[in-house]
């Protein structure tokens, strides 16, 4: 660069010409075409945070689990493995339906999109209902938050997941409603994509929790 013999004077440099699309409205300017659009990137960030939240809880779980000689502790009710296993399958299936929803949105089949979103929400609700029923039974059998660390961990981890399922159901309901009103098109279905991202996270988390809390 040292070769440039004449130094410029800043004031001599002409200012850039105003871009008409900015001054007079017009189509939005996207300087760089990003790899992932804002909404999807934002949701990835959010899921990263969620992951750390659950990592914190799971870390705490492992601290107790690894230092325990017998697990579950004596005189504590066993967890319902079978029912929850079936429930796991139900939830996993909902990951498929939400995936199909995105597929339908991509080709602009609004009716299919609406139906698949509906299925997903219904499966999620079913999962939650079964969980709720099992919880009621567990409490009845004497597994409470205060009965042992075991109980506390069970309700905290599974409860935290349950809250996320509820959040997902609300999210699904909003998107379902938007889809019915024709909010999405072949070109613009980011809302469905982000729904899939979040729901897939909630679903994928479940087998991990099931494996740790119920089976391990």
């Amino acid at each position: 660069m040292a070769t440039s013999s004449v130094a410029h004077k800043l004031d001599d440099v002409p200012p850039p010409a105003p871009r008409p699309e900015l001054v007079g409205g017009g189509p939005p300017v996207r300087p760089n075409m990003p790899l992932l659009n804002n909404a999807r990137l934002g949701v990835i960030m959010m899921l990263g945070a969620e992951l750390m939240f659950f990592a914190g809880l799971i870390g705490a779980f492992l601290v107790f689990r690894l230092s325990a000689q017998v697990w579950p502790p004596p005189f504590q009710p066993r967890l319902p493995l079978g029912v929850t296993g079936v429930n796991t399958v139900i939830l996993l299936f909902s990951a498929l339906t939400v995936h199909w929803a995105v597929g339908a949105a991509r080709v602009g089949q609004t009716a299919v999109l609406v139906r698949q979103l509906g299925f997903t929400a219904a499966l999620g609700a079913l999962f939650l209902a079964i969980q709720g029923y099992e919880w009621a039974r567990m409490i009845h059998f004497g597994l409470t938050t205060s009965s042992s660390v075991y109980g506390g961990l069970f309700y905290t981890l599974i409860g935290a997941h349950g809250v996320h399922v509820i959040g997902g159901l609300i999210w699904l309901a909003v998107v379902y409603w938007q889809a019915r009103r024709g909010r999405f098109s072949k070109k613009d279905f980011v809302g469905v994509q982000t729904t899939r991202m979040y729901w897939t996270f909630v679903v994928a988390l479940w087998p991990v929790l099931y494996g740790l809390v119920y089976l391990y």
Partner: peptide, 8 residues
């Protein structure tokens, strides 16, 4: 990445 652990 740090705050969620505090939240937990």
């Amino acid at each position: 990445l740090a705050l969620p652990v505090l939240t937990a």
